[in-house]
Structures are given as C-alpha cells and as structure tokens.
Design a protein around this nucleic acid. Sequence first.
RNA 1: GCCGAUGUAGCUCAAUGGUAGAGCAACUGAUUUGUAAUCAGUAGGUUGAAGGUUCAAUUCCUUUCAUCGGCUCCA
Length: 641
Amino acid sequence: MADKVRVVLPDGSKREYSSGITISEIIRESNPSLSKEAVAALLDGRMADLSEKVTEDSEIKIVSFDSKEGKGVFWHSTSHLMAQAVLDVFPGVKLDIGPSIDEGFYYDFDTPRPFEPEDLNKIEKRMEEIVKENLPFVRKEVSKKEAVEFFQQRGEKFKVARLSEMEEDRVFLYQHGNFVDLCRGPHVPSTGVIKSFKLLSIAGAYWKGSEKNPMLQRIYGISFPSPKELDEYLKRLEELKKRDHRVLGKELELFSISDDVGPGLILWHPKGAQIRRIIEDFWITEHQKNGYQLIYTPHIARLHLWETSGHTGFYRENMYSTMQVEDEEYQIKPMNCPFHIQIYKSKLRSYRELPLRLAELGACYRFERSGVLHGLMRVRGFTMDDAHIFCKPEQLEEEVIRLLKFSIWMLKTLGFENLQIFLSTRPDKFIGEEQNWEKATSALRQALEKQSLKFEVDEGGGAFYGPKIDIKIIDVMGRPWQCTTIQFDFNIPERFDLWFVGADGNYHRPIMIHRALLGSLERFFGVLIEHYGGAFPLWLSPVQVRVMPITDEQNSYSADILQRLQDEGFRAVMDDRNEKINFKIREAEKEKIPYMFIVGKKEVQDQSVSVRKHKGGDLGKFVLDELIRKLKEEVKNKSTE
RNA sequence: GCCGAUGUAGCUCAAUGGUAGAGCAACUGAUUUGUAAUCAGUAGGUUGAAGGUUCAAUUCCUUUCAUCGGCUCCA
C-alpha cells in the first residue's frame, strides 16, 4: 500500500493525501462548505460512506441530499433510525427490510399486534432521542455465515431468510448504537444528520409482496436535512389533498359514486358530463381528421367470442361472471378488441384498405378487487378511448410514428407538456415468432428515435402477446400517470384468423395494434381534475361565464348579456339572486368559474361589462363585442392560461 | 382479496351506556348591495346496514356494506 494517494476532488483539482485518510476528512479539508452538504460520496463512481478510508489513487464526488442518490441514502438511513426506535419501544418486534422509496422510506416489521396511530408518536419521540445522541453509522464486513449466525441468535428469521437467498459470500452490517442491520449502504455519517422527519402512515404489507406470505406491518415516513424542507413537504401533501379529484369531484359537482349503484361505478353529474362531452367531441373530430373510422359495438357478447380471443384464459380473473340469455352464455366486455375484429372480419379485406383504423369510445367492465378501487383512477366500469389498427408489416413504423405524434399532440393540447415514454420489450413468457417480436420492437424503437423522443426501455415489460410503448403524463404536481398505450398484438390476428389479400393476390396476416391515447375517460378526467386543481381552462370549463348584476335594477341588462353569450355559443349562467356582489363573487370563485361578468349602474350606463377572472381579480371594463372576440379566441386556441 | 383506520344532517365536524349538537349549505322573510361571506327565522337525523349484550346502545360485542392508507394488480 502506498503512503500517499492522489485524489481527484469534486472541483476537479488533484491533491495528495496520506493513505488511509477518510473521505470526509478530505472533503472537510478541501472544501468545508461541501462537507456540510455531503450525505455520502462517490468513490471512483461507487457509492461510499463518508467514513470510508481512501487507500488508492481515486476520484471523489460528493453525494448530497439534492440528488436522487443522496435522498435515497438519507431516507434509507432514516429507516434504520426508525427501526432502532421501533425495537426500543416495542421489544420483540422482528425486522424485515427498510428501503428508501421515491418519496421517503418504509420499514417492514413482524409484530405481535398491529401498530396503532398513537404508536407513531412514541416511535417519533424515541427517534428524536436517537438523533440527539448523534450515533455514528458504522460499516462492518462479515462473511455470510457470520451474518446468518448473528441474526439467528437475535431471532431475526426474515433477515436470515433473505440472507440465505443472497449469492454474495461477504455481506455488510451497519450499526448505530445497539442497532445492527444487514445493509449494502452507504449511510449518512451519524443519526444527528437526520434533523427532521415524520412518520406518515401504517400499512399491512405482504412479506416480499406475495399474498401467499404472511403480512407484516409497514411504517412509511419522510425525512429532510432541515425542518423547513419537511414543512414544505407537508404543505405539498396538503396541496395534494386539496387537489384530490374525489374531493373536487364532490365540491364542484362533477361526478359521484353511489353505494346503491356499486363501488367503482361512476355517475357523471351534469358538469362532469359537460367536460366529458367536450373531450369526446374533440377526440372524435381529431380521430376523423387522422384517418380513423368511428364505430360502435355492444356491451356484451357470447362467451364463445371471449374463448376465441383467449380472454377466458388469461384474463378471466378480471372478467365478471357470465349471464344466461336463452340458454346461451353472454359476457360483459372487459375489452373492445374482439368486436373491432368482427368488423374487420365482416368482409374480405384488401391491402388497399390498410391501414384500417377503427376507433370507439367503448365502455368496458372489469372486475377489480375491492381494495384497489380509487375514485376515478381505478374503477370497475370505464370508457376506453380505444382504437385498433390493422396494417401490413411494412406500414408498422410509419403507423407508430403517426400514433406517437397524434398522442403527444393530443395530450399537450389537453394541458400536459411533460411526458415520459417507455418502450416495453419481450417478456420471458411470450407467444408468436421471435423474429416478429424483433421486427415490431425495432419498429417501435425506430419510430421513437426518428422523432428524437427520449424514452426508457422496460426490458421484458411487454405483454405476452406483443411489445408496447406507454406514455405517462406528468401533472402539475410532478406525478406520473399512465395514459397512452400502443400495443402490438401477435396473438389475436392468429386466434381470429385474420387475412387480407395482398398486391400479389395471396393471403397475408395483418398486424394489429391496440391503442388508447387518454387511457380511459374516467382516469383521464381524474388526472385532469387534479392537474388543474378543478380550475379548468376556458374551453373545458363546464360554466365559462357567470353574469352577475349588482342589484336587481341591472337584471334585464344582465339577461341581455347572458342571451348574447349563449347565442355566441358560450356556456354562461346568470346569478341574479338577491345577494351582495361580494357574496356572488365569493361563490363564483369557489366554483372556479373562469370569468365573472359584473354589471352595475355604470356598466348599464355605458353599455359595458366589468370582468373578473378566476384568481385573476378585476380586469376592468370592456365592450361586450370585444370581450366575446377575446373569449372566443381563448376557446379556439384551447388556451390553458 | 389481505392488514389497519374510518362511517353521526347535503358538506365539515362535536357529544354521552340514559333516545344527538354546531358551522356552512337548503328553505322563508327583511335588506338593493361595486370585486371573496348582510341579518333574522324555519326545517333537516332509524348515528352506514343487520343481529346481539343491557332496564336502556349512536356508544360495548358479532356479522356485513362502503370509504380511506397500504400490499397485490392495472386503463
């Protein structure tokens, strides 16, 4: 081992240190301000503890809370901190694992009795004490055998079970105080770094996520380097609560779910239905412009159809039971594709007809387990904005390019600028020819690359019947939602024995693409509500203008304005109740109506309108004609401002 | 489906083993009002449902339905 090591520092400069110096010493010496930020380090690109010794020439980068990795380290360390507190407060509890997640961390425990909400306070109190003790996290390398013995002795059967599945011979233990956990690390230097945390919820979670395994108790939490950041995070949670589509759906009278009707079944109230209708009209018009033909298909079909499609096999658990009609079994549809295929099959198809694009807003019913239902986001009855494209293999790529363009344009028009694209490739279990998979997957990839779209590859994430592209939209709160899905299907054309006559006069198998752009109208509406926080842009808003006379002397003038607005095609209403203008404004603001037209004596006198914009305050007086022109422009542009 | 929590007026919430109360909303009346709540009055409940314990249950117990947070799954 050399006496001296040459180290490339985070700022790119090089320095010499005596061998065995720790990373944190180097950082503290070379850049004290960085040392405060650092939660861990990258040592030659490998995640390392700050306490790790440097014994070779190497490059050091710091990992701070600002980065994804840094957050992971910080949260993971907090989960250890919490686990210690849990063991201190509830002796006899057994440990499973406690990773960091996208937002925060959790730890799974095996407990004699479930945790109660008050337990979280007790655990938090103990955590605070441990933070004050500022215990260092110490890393120790041991053989797997030693680790097994150690945890066996402590009765940590889940740890032992997980260890026995690991392939490595050498494993790492992390200790702070009397708490020892099996862990790859790295960790923050000491418990004192974790200044600010909150335990958020308790949940049951199956061991290793499988229903066959026993259920453990999971505690979720979040932590930050400063109380201020925690505060901001909790405020964000509040904001999310306010935007919750279930809350807004009720407040704004958009939709409801009735016990008497059944869980997961949506009642669209007039205002929600109005928005849906606008989206549907938009969708229909644009599909027609884009070479789709609209169709309608029934809600039920003979069970036989679903046997042919294969759904009774691989999709059975999501299907409702059949109903008996004149000694025939009928099935309510979980998908639209078999119907669309019947339309394809209704006559002999020529290559000249391809690509054939059949589109339908089709209502589907799927059985979802009671525990997974969630407002509009996860329901049992929903409307897919579905289409099936039948094409020749050589048309694939162009078709996918068209699809991507169409989908992205539509999502952006609806207000979603940020998208995430995923390409899912062949899973282990698949049907169809391997070379077809190759062709199709490369068509998808090429289509993405030709438009220089950024995408992630989900290896093996495709359906068993074909590869796919998924597009997720990122809403205004930064959350991803799955919408568009473009899936190839090698299965169904075979099963239904689909053909077209080629230019060569021979029969050929068409390729089929399933696709949905918005996903389902229900889920998309849910996302839309949360994205806009219920304050829809003018073109979507169920009520666009509310005309509000100040006293009943202006009622007739207001009625004229209302009539004019309605004649011009606006969704306008009048509030001529015997109330103060402040009160009317307050209600209109709460209902998030985009424009309030206020008319009093002055406006009647000079035949004008005072305009107030939702959240925008008083815009001043306008001539009605000019105003109508402006608003029409705003609707036409589908402006999201 | 599983684990836990919750379920009281349209909404948000309170209360006690002795037959439920507030604010907002609704309705009625007064008020004629200038950019986020005018005042007064009236009405509103088989306390999610069913069963049990008890002299007495909204409260305790059992079952059930639904919702919420998760697990699992997905448009």
